[in-house]
Amino acid sequence: MSLAVRRAKDYTVKVVSTAFAVVALFLLAWILFTLVQKGLPALNLNVFTRMTLPPGHEGGLLNAIVGSLIQIGLAMLIGTPIGLLAGTFLAENGKTSKLGHIARFVNDILLSAPSILVGLFVYAFLVNPFGGFSGWAGSVALAILVIPVIVRTTEDMLNLVPIGLREAAYALGAPQWKVVMMVTWRAARAGIMTGILLSIARAAGETAPLLFTSLGNNSWSTDLSRPMASLPIAIYQYAGSPFDDWVALAWAGALLITVSVLLLNIISRLVLAKTG
């Protein structure tokens, strides 16, 4: 091949690759544009102050928003300590042990496993035997989705903490719980925080696992033992409906969720960039 042909080929591939990157950016912009275009007109005060109502009654999404916040909050309360400790186990105790290798493998599987199966599992494990759909079941399902994210980031971030720091603490006679809590966790706190923020973002957008666990609820309820509304389920229900005002509300909810999730993602990256 002559040099001219090789150069032309190189140039073509570069142009095509750049075009592909532009396509990806365009797709993101397109999705965001659609959300703003359809969601912004429907996003008024009613969305935040009124319950979900039958079509034609100018309802809002208040119960769904509150339901989502409660379930995400509870999921984080359950998931954060377990994920943090399991991630710490992998970084501190599971380096060489067989259990560590298997747990790391299992966590990677859980991280990418279909979320709908987590919902199905919680249905079979909690909902079916314990008397029906509940906010508890929804929170547990979200917690199971949040745990692998926290485990993964915690382990990765603790691995970045220099060994010397730990050795210095051990050399002073500190027991492991002090070394971990006061030295390694403190040194890696920005990274761990990133993982927690990212996992909140994941929990906020999940719909499938809530279908069979907290089910959704069209009236106000903060009772965790009863079916509980959530934003993604309300969006799912409304978007597939034939009523224009419901579809508009679904877009408002979609805009709300996406903006929160993207903001959480960007903030978590900034936290990491600033301190890392």
Binding site: A21, A24, L25, L27, L28, W30, I31, T34, L35, K38, A201, A204, G205, E206, T207, A208, P232, I235, Y236, A239, A250, W251, A254, I257, T258, V261, L262, N265, I266, R269
Partner: peptide, 24 residues
Amino acid sequence: PIGVAVQLLAAVPSIIYGMWGFFI
């Protein structure tokens, strides 16, 4: 920035892709 923007495509919730796919 471009790398982060591409990654944000992964952050958009699945249900949003569903609506975008269905309506657009």
